[in-house]
Structures are given as C-alpha cells and as structure tokens.
Design a binder for these strands. Structure first.
Length: 331
DNA sequence: GTTCTTACA
DNA sequence: TGTAAGCA
C-alpha cells in the first residue's frame, strides 16, 4: 500500500505519516525501487496505535517510548507497558484538567474585579497571577516524585518490620477502618493506598473502594490483592476522579509525606472529590520532633476551619486517627 | 500523476 | 503538522 492510500484509509495526511516515520515511530518501512514507501499490515497496525495514543494526548516522544520497548518484549509485558503509559497519561491529564479549571476561575475573578473597581485593578491581577503560579508550581514539582518506588514487592513485609515508620500497622488500619464505619455500597477512596491494606478492610465492610497511588508497582500489587478495587495512578495534589464522587475518603501513612505548603492544596483536592456531606478519616504518625507535628496541627486546623467536627483517637503510640464529619448547616 | 526531500510557517 | 517548491 502506498502512502496516499494509507493516509486516506486512516484519515490522516501523508505529511503526518512521514513525520511519524521520521521521528522513529515507524521503523523499517520498505521502499520500492522508485523510493516510494510501501506499507504492510504491521505498519498499519502501528499507525492505528499511534493515532489512538495521540488522541489520548500523548506526545510523539512518549509514544515512541511505548512502541520502542514493545517489539523487544512479549505480549504480556506489552500490555502492561501500554497500561502503564496510559495510566501515566491519565494522571497527567487529571493535573492539566485542574490547571485549566483554575485558569478559568482566575479569569472569572479578574473579570469580577474589573467590574467593581473604579481604577484598573492591575495590582490585584498581579497578585492573583502570583497565587495561581504558586499552585501550578506545587502541582508541577510533584511529577519528579513519580516512579520513585521500586520496592513495592517488599512493601507488605516492610510495614510489619519497620516499626518506626509503621507503628502497630495492622491494629492501626483495623482501627481506622472501624472508625469510618462504611455502609454497604458506599463509595470510598483511599489516598496513597499502597498495596491496599486499608482499602481492603473497607472492602470487607461492603464499601465500594477506589484508591490512588504514585507507584506503579504498588498499583500492580494492589490490583492482584483486591481485584474489586478501582485503582488509579495519581497523587494527592491532583486526584484523577470527578467532583463529588465519594461518600468518604481515607488515608493512612500518606499525609506525612506532604510539605506544609502542599497540605492546603491536597485538602482542597480531597474536598473536591468528596460528596457534600462526606466524611474524612486520616491516620498517620505524629513524630514529636518539630517538622511534622506542625503538619498534624495544620491538618486539624484546616478541617475545623472548614466546618468539620473532629474526633481524634490514638490507636497506637505515636499514631493518630482523625475522623472528620461535616457539621450540617441547615440552609 | 504520484511521491520524495527540504525548507519555512 | 500544513504548505510549497523543485525533482525523479
């Protein structure tokens, strides 16, 4: 098949096909004597894959990486690799989606200012822009954390042996799940679910569980342990779920990794995916030393300021569980 | 007439 | 990625 016919069939331009070839997405295209390209079924298949991934918003560079490693491996790993890249893409888009939304909001705020101020509110514009920029930076910088965890296979052993990082692990999780009191069919989200140990307990209570984690290996382990769970790649600053999706959100041993400036953003994200009267249950360590204890306090303050009623318990030495239930405001 | 490469937008 | 030029 020559290039024109192929382009017509796939609904793309010949230029695009040549461009893909030039960028290494179509290796080994055969030439006729007159130097015309001839495409075989394999090429067609690859091109269809490329078009699909482009439609998902993947860059040509990313697609090349997906496809390159593909031919070298077997069918199972191909599937996994594809899945991994698509999940990465999903997480990326979740962040961009939030960014777009924030831009729309900023625009509205600027219009409002313009409406009600006498003079041009240039100073206010500038301040708005500064805030927006900081948010973007925070989200953006997170990307560097991705893929850091190659030790997921040992994770479940690790939580039982490292008593400093995970004091009283099983008891703590059981206590957390008990505090939540999931009702049959409720929809819950576990932030930083790891291998799903907390989510699994809530699953057992009859809840419909979803979870996010940054580590692909964790996701893999979690899926094999709890096939019923909906697990996605993501982080606390851009959660890849729709607004008001969950009756409750839980998290264990995850918030401690947040920097102080990140906490408000993470909580705003949490609140976004939570239903209006949803509850929150966060379990974590409180190191007595300065840094993270302020994090715990900030967490509590934020929740109180946002009309949650708090119940704080300590299921184990050095661990706290915060159950936050919204105070119903009659309107 | 079709495709190719190269250059520019 | 579109468009155009100059070739084979």
């Amino acid at each position: 098949m020559k290039i024109n016919e192929l382009a017509r069939k796939l609904g793309i331009s010949t230029r695009t096909i040549r461009f893909y070839e030039q960028n290494g997405l179509l290796p080994g295209v055969i030439r006729e004597n007159n130097r015309y390209r001839v495409f075989n079924d394999e090429d067609v298949w690859r091109l269809q894959t490329i078009i699909a991934l482009r439609e998902a918003g993947m860059t040509v560079k990313d697609i090349r990486e997906v496809l390159e490693s593909e031919s070298a491996h077997h069918a199972v790993t191909d599937r996994e690799r594809l899945r991994y890249y698509l999940e990465l893409q999903q997480a990326l888009l979740a962040g961009q989606w939030l960014e777009m939304r924030r831009m729309a909001e900023t625009t509205s705020q600027m219009l409002e200012l313009l409406q009600k101020e006498q003079e041009l509110p240039l100073q206010e514009f500038f301040e708005l822009a500064q805030q927006a920029r900081q948010l973007r930076e925070l989200r953006h910088n997170w990307r560097d954390h991705w893929n850091f965890d190659q030790r997921a296979e040992e994770h479940d052993r690790h939580v039982h042996t490292d008593h400093t990082a995970y004091p009283g692990y099983d008891e703590v999780l059981t206590h957390t799940a008990a505090s939540v009191r999931a009702a049959q069919g409720e929809r819950g989200l576990d932030l930083g679910t790891g291998t799903g140990n907390l989510a699994g307990r809530l699953l057992a209570q009859g809840a419909n569980m979803a979870g996010i984690d940054q580590s692909r290996e964790m996701l893999k382990q979690c899926r094999s342990k709890f096939p019923a769970m909906d697990v996605r790649m993501g982080n606390l600053l851009s959660i890849p779920y729709d607004d008001r999706s969950f009756d409750f959100v839980v998290s264990s041993f995850a918030f401690r990794y947040l920097a102080e400036q990140e906490l408000p953003l993470a909580l705003a994200e949490l609140q976004r995916v939570l239903k209006p009267h949803g509850r929150i249950c966060i379990t974590d360590t409180i190191p007595e030393n300065t840094e993270n204890s302020t994090l715990a306090r900030l967490l509590q303050d934020w929740l109180e300021q946002h009309d949650y009623m708090l119940q704080r318990t300590s299921p184990y030495t050095g661990v706290f569980t915060l159950l936050a239930v919204p105070i119903r405001v009659s309107s």
